[in-house]
Simulated assay, not measured.
Amino acid sequence: MSNISTSVPTRAPIRSRRSIALLVLGLTVLLAGYALPFLGLPRNVLTLLTSASMTAILATGVGFLVRQAGLTSFGHAAFYGGTAYLIVLLSVHSGLPGELIVLSAPVIVTAAAFGLAFILLRTHGVAFSMLSLAVAQALFELMMRWRDLANGEDGLRMRLPRELFGLKLTFFQKADTMFLVSWSVLALIILGLVLLARSNFGTLTLAIKNNEERARFIGYRTLMPRALIIALSAFIAAVGGMLFALYHGYVTPGILHWSLSGEALIIAIIGGTRAVWGPALGAFVFVILRDLASNYTTHWQSIVGLTLIAVVLLMPKGISGVITGFLQPKRRNGDD
């Protein structure tokens, strides 16, 4: 009898090596980010990076909703801007402690999003997107027209105490220190979403996304997990809005406009939604590209539009998909 040696190829080593490579890359980027404020960068560059990190949080929430539930939202500006407005309004019209205002605002917005999710989930596809857009625009119109409450299109200035969480309020309004805060928050959010995606709940929601009918058939209730995903996505956007309010100390209705939601969705597509960190990468690329383009032309939107078209056609998985594909070791011939 001839000796026939057979080997069963496994993808585990390949996945393990790719995970290690991504971990090393992620830690390198994280540490590099913490080093940026100490490199003597111009103030306008630090301001740009701080804005990008807050936008990255919003885009991460939008991208997470697409990745985990297959839902496309045009209304996340309501959660982002709604939190910023709530902090400013409470600081002006209530006598609550500043810390309570800042911490409770994202929770209140998230609770509202959770309740709203049961209405939004009665629709599917384009109808879901349009309904989320309608909710955001309704809030935009409310802040625009209710001058006695929010001062209309002129906006409203925050009135928090000079100290917050034991730190001077100016700590949150300087580009270098606020970048470190928002960078840390972004890193914690991405880490939390990575762990959630690998949990049983993350696996369940992906299964519901791929085939909701089959998930129901085997005994799972699908409405509550999907509502929780919407609420979590809203919470991420709300945290970004909280940082925005602390940093700028001023809000206008523009932060509630549908164009901000659309921008966040474009960013998520550019970065790629298959990776949790993809939309965050897309945010930095988008904000930097927008700033560079606006220095040369007033029609910078056309450059961003052409970039989006190029990404969709040449990189359907986004920039993050290209990076993960590059880090994935090539299989030998004959491997499955």
Rank of each mutant, 00 (worst) to 15 (best):
S2Y: 02
S5W: 02
S7T: 12
T10H: 10
R11D: 11
P13V: 00
R15A: 14
G26E: 07
L27C: 14
V29H: 00
L36V: 00
T55Y: 09
A59Y: 01
R67W: 02
R67C: 07
A69Q: 08
L71Q: 15
A77D: 05
T83P: 05
T83N: 14
A84G: 08
Y85Q: 14
V88D: 06
V88I: 09
V88L: 08
L90E: 08
S104K: 11
V107F: 07
A112P: 00
A112G: 13
A112C: 12
G115Y: 00
H124E: 05
G125K: 09
S129F: 03
A134Y: 02
V135Y: 02
A136K: 04
L139S: 09
E141R: 15
M143T: 15
M143K: 15
W146E: 15
G152I: 04
G152D: 09
L167F: 08
Q173G: 13
D176H: 07
V181M: 10
S182H: 08
S182T: 15
W183V: 00
W183H: 02
S184Y: 03
L186I: 08
L193A: 12
L193G: 11
L196I: 01
F201Y: 06
L204M: 05
A207C: 10
K209R: 15
Y220C: 06
T222I: 06
L223E: 13
L223Q: 14
M224W: 11
P225Y: 00
R226D: 02
R226A: 09
A227H: 01
L228Q: 12
L228N: 08
A234I: 04
I236G: 09
I236F: 06
G240S: 07
M242C: 14
L243P: 02
F244L: 15
H248S: 13
H248I: 12
G249T: 09
Y250E: 08
G254W: 04
I255E: 01
S259K: 09
G262N: 05
G262F: 00
A264Q: 03
I267G: 05
A268H: 06
I269Y: 03
I270P: 01
G272V: 01
G272H: 06
R274V: 05
L281C: 13
A283I: 00
A283K: 10
F286W: 12
F286Q: 11
I288A: 15
R290I: 02
D291M: 04
L292S: 12
H299E: 12
S302Y: 11
G305T: 04
I319R: 14
I319W: 08
S320V: 04
R331C: 01
R331W: 00
D336R: 15
